[in-house]
């Protein structure tokens, strides 16, 4: 059973389709990045998963359960929205104590102390949250979201409004939660660099549809397969004729002195080089090529905009 399952999900508001046949799954303990431009339907998906909005068609499950119909199931899920869910007039500890009461946290005082220390707010525990900076509120919001040790936590733009130091702290915290507490993290973020660093799997949502859903590793290697770029000493004319018919080469392209090959077998690079040298080509450099998540994201979003 997956931690999160979305199958054939569609939803429209006032006649406008927001989500169209969206399907993906998130495995237990994964850090999943949900990407998409503003208005793509990311927050709508999260709201449907959390039972705040009803799906139009399709089915959603979190830990195998429907959170809309199952009050108890929500005790296993944490959530951080943009507003942090905190009262400005209550203290940091008071806010956490309130949610500890709602979620039935055992030994709340100890857990609150532990979390305030974790997010570096122990010395501000009794101060009203209204006196906190944006970054401090965000950190406290994360502490609130994981207070009850949820199995799945939904984080909506957790680094938004944070300075680079606080962003790094949030990143490290997410990785630690996933590793130490085996928490599944559903991360809704615009920080593509952040997603590439910490997420194991991503889905790109654009125009209401899932445009890509794969591991970060597969997405960032061309077409999900390893590719190499060989810089030749001199023009690369004829190189594709030499290697293009090799069984492990699926795509070949020459651009000046650069030969780009996509391989079916990631261990075939030495054989490719041997074939080129055997055909008389002189080689200056060989490197594995990969694309950044940002490039892939922009490509998919651009394609969706063209379709629209």
């Amino acid at each position: 059973m997956n931690a999160v399952e979305v199958r054939g999900l569609s939803r429209s508001f006032d006649g406008r389709d927001i989500l169209r046949d969206v399907s993906f799954t998130v495995g237990h303990g994964e850090i999943f990045g949900y990407l998409g431009p503003n208005g793509a339907g990311k927050t709508t998906t999260i709201r449907i998963l959390l039972g705040l909005l009803a799906p139009g068609t399709g089915e959603v499950r979190v830990l195998g359960r429907d959170l809309a119909a199952d009050d108890e199931a929500r005790a296993h899920v944490g959530v951080l929205f943009e507003n942090n869910g905190l009262s400005d007039r209550m203290s940091a500890a008071g806010n956490l104590a309130y949610y500890a009461g709602l979620y039935g946290v055992e030994d709340p005082a100890e857990r609150i102390d532990e979390l305030l220390a974790l997010v570096d707010l122990a010395d501000r525990r009794d101060d009203p949250v209204g006196t906190f900076s944006t970054g401090m509120k965000r950190k406290l919001g994360i502490a609130r979201a994981i207070l009850h040790r949820p199995e799945v936590v939904f984080l909506d733009e957790p680094s938004s409004g944070l300075d680079p130091g606080a962003q790094r702290m949030v990143r490290d915290l997410i990785i630690e939660l996933s590793r130490r507490e085996e928490m599944t993290v559903f991360l809704n973020s615009h920080h593509l660099d952040e997603v590439q660093r910490i997420c194991s799997t991503v889905a790109i949502l654009a125009g209401g549809r899932i445009r890509a859903f794969d591991s970060v590793e597969n997405l960032t290697t061309a077409s999900g397969r390893p590719s190499v770029t060989v810089t030749l000493a001199g023009a690369g004319e004829g190189a594709c004729e030499v290697v293009g018919n090799l069984p492990y080469v699926t795509e070949c392209d020459v651009d000046g002195d650069a030969l780009h090959c996509t391989l079916a077998d990631p261990t075939a690079t030495p054989d490719l080089i041997t074939a080129l040298v055997g055909a008389g080509f002189r080689i200056e450099e060989v490197r594995r090529s990969s694309r950044s998540l940002e490039e892939i994201y922009l490509e998919h979003v651009g394609r969706a905009e063209d379709e629209a």
């Binding site: 959390l50 039972g51 705040l52 959170l67 009050d71 108890e72 199931a73 929500r74 005790a75 899920v77 959530v79 929205f81 943009e82 507003n83 942090n84 869910g85 905190l86 009262s87 949610y99 709602l102 979620y103 039935g104 609130r144």
Partner: peptide
């Protein structure tokens, strides 16, 4: 403030 959204996700009807 939007904090109601977080409260609606708690295990409370």
């Amino acid at each position: 403030d939007g904090t109601i959204e977080t409260l609606l996700c708690a295990p409370v009807s």
